Computed example of a mutant assay.
Amino acid sequence: MPTNSVVLQGSGADVDGTIKSYAWSQVSGPGTAVLSGASTSALTASSLAEGSYVFALTVTDNQDAVSTPDQVTVTVNPAPAVTYTLTTTASPGAGGTVGRSPNATSYASGSVVSLTATPAAGYVFSGWSGDATGTTNPLSVTMSANKSITATFTQMPPTTFTLTTTASPTVGGSISRTPNATSYASGTVVSLTATPAAGYTFTGWSGDATGTVNPLSVTMSANKSITATFTATGGGAQM
């Protein structure tokens, strides 16, 4: 196999006459064989399956004498196993890994391989490309050819944010924060308190905050810049 047919060429001789007819038959073996030309010197046996076949030829001369059957054995070997390779790639390389189950260098035709994309810290899996598409994870791949599949990972946006605060004018007062840090994890709530200097009054927030609530609660969902505005009162010194 994969060849599943054979042509058998027979012959006969008669020292005192001529050969009148040929007759091929199957003696043993799988019952799949289809015989063509069984009454000629050349037999075609097709639809052969894995196994051993025995065919016999007899010839008849012009005086109707029949020869002793002459047998021939045909052995059909199993078809060689068909295997395929699977190449997997992570893009970018630092973005994550691609695991496979079962893990092998090649796979028999029809094998189902499960691919799992695992993102590295700071990345998310965003999809398959090459000989696969979509975002299903794990992904089942049926091996019907050599395949190359890429897992794409996308870097996540920063999960910490900065908060810049400004007093306007700078001599008008100060802004304190709780907790006091240079950056904040996403979702952190920071309390800002505007404290006016002598001769000034706090009049409101601007930038990434509005209103006059004081203290002000700020939820960190992005880098933010907030200004506290102070206004001189009639009885205070102005600069």
Rank of each mutant, 00 (worst) to 15 (best):
D131V: 00
T170W: 03
Y84L: 01
W128L: 03
T178H: 09
V76H: 01
L48P: 00
T97S: 07
Y84Q: 01
L163F: 03
W128Q: 02
S144F: 05
F153L: 07
Y184L: 13
Y53Q: 11
T60N: 05
I149C: 07
A79K: 15
T159Y: 09
T210G: 04
A197W: 02
S174G: 11
Q71K: 05
D131M: 06
T159L: 14
Q71D: 15
T75I: 02
N137V: 03
G173C: 01
L139W: 05
K147F: 10
L8E: 14
G236P: 00
N214R: 06
G211M: 09
T18V: 09
G122T: 03
A145W: 01
G37Q: 09
A120E: 15
T89C: 08
A222Y: 00
T87P: 00
A222R: 12
V59K: 08
Q26Y: 06
Y84V: 03
V189T: 13
G234N: 11
T142K: 12
P157F: 04
T195D: 11
S47W: 04
T3D: 15
S126D: 14
S186Y: 02
P196C: 01
T68I: 11
T210Q: 12
L57D: 09
Q26C: 10
S174N: 02
A209K: 08
S225N: 08
N214Q: 11
Y123T: 03
A198N: 14
A45M: 06
S168P: 07
M1S: 15
V218E: 15
A237F: 05
Q9D: 14
Q9P: 02
K224L: 03
S144N: 09
S186Q: 11
F55N: 09
G96P: 09
A194G: 05
I19A: 10
L43E: 11
G211Q: 00
V74N: 10
T188L: 08
Y22S: 02
P138I: 00
Q155W: 01
Q238M: 12
T60W: 13
S111R: 05
P78A: 08
A38H: 08
G51E: 15
E50C: 08
S183Y: 01
V98Q: 03
F230Y: 10
S168Q: 12
T3E: 04
Q155L: 10
G173Q: 14
G122E: 03
S183E: 14
A194F: 01
A237K: 08
W205C: 02
T73R: 03
S101C: 06
N77K: 11
M220R: 13
S5Y: 10
Q26A: 11
T116A: 07
T203R: 10
Q71R: 15
F55H: 01
D14I: 04
T150A: 13
T136N: 14
T44Q: 15
V72T: 14
A117M: 12
P30T: 12
G110Q: 02
G127K: 15
Q155I: 07
T32P: 04
V66W: 06
S206G: 09
F202R: 07
A42E: 15
I149V: 06
W24H: 14
A94T: 14
L48K: 07
A104D: 12
V171K: 07
T229W: 12
T160V: 09
T97W: 06
S174C: 08
T75F: 10
S25R: 14
T135G: 12
A104G: 12
A197C: 10
S67M: 04
G127P: 10
S39K: 04
T60G: 12
T88Q: 06
T118I: 06
G235F: 05
